[in-house]
Design a protein around this nucleic acid. Structure first.
Length: 286
DNA sequence: TGACAGGAAAATA
DNA sequence: TATTTTCCTGTC
């Protein structure tokens, strides 16, 4: 018998190390569907909505819908990452990085759902962050499964089951332009099991399989690897990173090349270097 | 209102 | 193989 989760509510508490910042982790650009409210951040997570609030070194998490364990939330927010090892490694590789890390201190790489992340970054191609957010929220609203939190409806991020049945008229409402054919191809030919099957393969194998998805090039593939497939050495290069790598490290060339250069420069935690750099470039001197 | 922002793939050299 | 062009929507 199907259990009804819609009126379930469950609170957990997580202690975090002094530097952890929920705010930076959720707003550094790796996740799009985050809602800021007076009572904390609302974030869709599987078949529930999380209300997250940080007070000093405690995270207060209330889940609405399917109950979520402490372990799941810790993994989701990257709380298990050994940040001292990561920061130490990056500074050891490039001394210049210490001030960039200092600026972004507290952010973590999240471990999001790869199916969802692929859709997010297909939408992101040649698009600004506010537009991406609006499109993703609209898609979730069209599918229409969600839960009311503090009087406002929030919608889950749809999985493959719902998206396979999406009609052309609904797809049209998303105004995806030239991305539409890629999105349609993806929801028709892929589901969550594709990601489960490749999850334990090597970095190169995973990258290759992701590049087979229509519309997924090097940048999007590395976003998926980094933000949802536990590959902390991935190094997605967008226009910001391209500019930053030139201005700060005198690295030039095509985005594809810079991805390889960055991975070589920063090593196994290149993905953290990328995210620190992105945060710095987007927010510093604002 | 025209310039600009933003990756992948096809076309071209 | 490396560079250039095309694709589309939204914002200022």
């Amino acid at each position: 018998m199907q259990k009804r989760y819609s009126d379930l509510q469950n609170s957990i508490q997580i202690s975090v190390s002094g530097d952890f910042s929920l705010q930076k982790t959720l707003l550094c650009g790796q996740i799009f569907r985050v809602f800021e409210t007076e009572n904390g951040f609302i974030v869709p997570f599987n078949r529930s909505l999380l209300k997250l609030l940080q007070k000093k070194d405690e995270i207060y998490c209330t889940s609405y819908g399917k109950p979520v364990s402490q372990g799941e939330v810790k993994k989701f927010l990257g709380i298990n990452d050994d940040i001292n090892d990561i920061n130490g490694e990056l500074i050891r590789k490039t001394a210049k990085f210490s001030q960039i890390i200092q600026y972004g201190e507290g952010l973590r790489i999240m471990r999001q759902n790869p199916y969802e992340t692929t859709i997010s970054f297909l939408f992101s191609i040649q698009n600004s962050i506010p537009v991406i957010k609006r499109r993703l929220n609209l898609l979730s609203e069209i599918v229409g499964e969600g839960i009311r939190v503090d009087g406002t409806m929030y919608y889950f991020s749809p999985g493959s089951e719902a998206l396979k049945n999406l009609d052309a008229q609904s797809v049209g409402k998303l105004h995806l332009g030239f991305r539409e054919k890629w999105f349609v191809d993806f929801v028709q030919n892929y589901d969550e099991t594709f990601f489960e099957r490749i999850l334990r393969k090597s970095f190169e194998e995973k990258e290759k399989k992701l590049l087979n998805i229509k519309g997924v090039g090097k940048k999007v593939a590395h976003c998926i690897l980094l933000f949802s497939m536990n590959e902390l050495s991935a190094f997605p290069v967008d226009v910001w990173i391209k500019r930053g790598m030139y201005e700060l490290f005198d690295v030039k060339g095509s985005s594809k090349k810079i991805t390889e250069t960055g991975r070589g420069m920063f090593g196994k935690y290149a993905g953290y270097a990328q995210e620190y750099l992105f945060y710095y470039l987007r927010n510093y001197s604002k």
